[in-house]
Design a protein around this nucleic acid. Structure first.
Lengths: 190, 190
DNA sequence: GTCTATATTGCGATAGAC
DNA sequence: GTCTATCGCAATATAGAC
């Protein structure tokens, strides 16, 4: 195992793809862009991934693992409302990156929907896992309408991320985050 | 003026572009796709638009006029909360189309952000006009935090449209629409 | 297993006939 | 003004040398 294969080129490519796809979007990103970011020769990509679609799929799953790790960290907090508010604070903490490139999950979902391949189903699954977890938190708060609340919270973030990106204004996401925290508190009290 | 130039090929092209760009996305749409939809020969497009970007720009402005017309119709309603609720109902009424292709404005904004040209600023202006109008309605309701509320309402819709599209479930937008209507009512009463 | 050189394709854009 | 034929380029994918 030489130094150049350290960490595995396949993993390097998938990891670089997550970053570059977020910054440039799926359509504007070439295999050369990802290969350069991963420090792997262009033609070599096809040894690890048969098609561009397979590399994108690996990137989506890698991104899904990031989200799973985040959820795992949130689980350590004491109450559901603390966990949800920490989730919102995490989103607000990425407001600068979001202003530049949008929400990684949301932009991916929007773009992949326009393609013929089935990759939009893959992002939908990743997004669905996080949405289910949010629903679980509201359910733990004793809310019968947990699903509807989960959709509302997640949609509020996704929309705020889109506006933040469109108007290049990180403050929008921060302000909306504070509003959502107050909203979560109000639900916990009722 | 022959029959084939009726309505103007330039207008036909811009109008067809609005539809096709919504359905297929900017990147997947070729000039040939738009020309076919407008029933205009491919090469002829360049007589009316010097570049693909200019055609997209014309499509954005055409879409902006649609939104302006919608706002004009809403203006005829008696109270700000009626106008805002009618806006939400209009969004919910497009839930099937939204499940298939997403919000026309939001998907356009997300995609154009990834491009080098300045077209993302053009969509931002169009979206900004609608956002300003919503803000004006909340202000007319006597709310000092009108801007924040406008962002919250618009973001809630944009996010719900994204989830509706991602999960291919029109019901999400309908349910979220009802929640937003109750929210508007609660603001009017306070 | 790794990398280079090249085949292939599809699209934006242009030249120029009518 | 309208349309056809084609150029040029960029990007995916492959063949095959090392």
């Amino acid at each position: 195992m030489t130094d150049s294969t350290r960490a595995g080129k396949r993993e390097r490519l998938a990891g670089a793809a997550v970053r570059v796809l977020h910054e440039q979007g799926v359509e504007k990103t070439t295999l050369a862009d990802i290969a350069r970011a991963a420090d792997v020769p262009v033609g070599n990509v096809y040894y690890y991934f048969k098609t561009k679609d397979q590399l994108i799929e690996a990137a989506i799953e890698e991104h899904g693992h990031h989200l799973d790790d985040m959820v795992e960290a949130l689980e350590r907090l004491g109450t559901p409302q603390e966990r949800l508010k920490a989730l919102v604070q995490g989103w607000a903490g990425e407001s600068d990156l979001t202003a530049r490139y949008g929400c990684p999950t949301g932009t991916l979902a929007a773009e992949l929907d326009k393609r013929d391949d089935g990759l939009d189903r893959t992002v939908a699954k990743v997004m669905g896992r996080l949405l289910d977890w949010v629903e679980g938190q509201f359910a733990a708060m004793g809310r019968a309408d947990a699903r509807e609340l989960a959709v509302a919270l997640f949609a509020a973030y996704q929309g705020a991320a889109l506006l933040t990106n469109t108007f290049r204004d990180p403050g929008l996401l921060v302000t909306e985050g504070r509003r959502l925290e107050r909203w979560i508190d109000s639900l916990a009290r009722s």
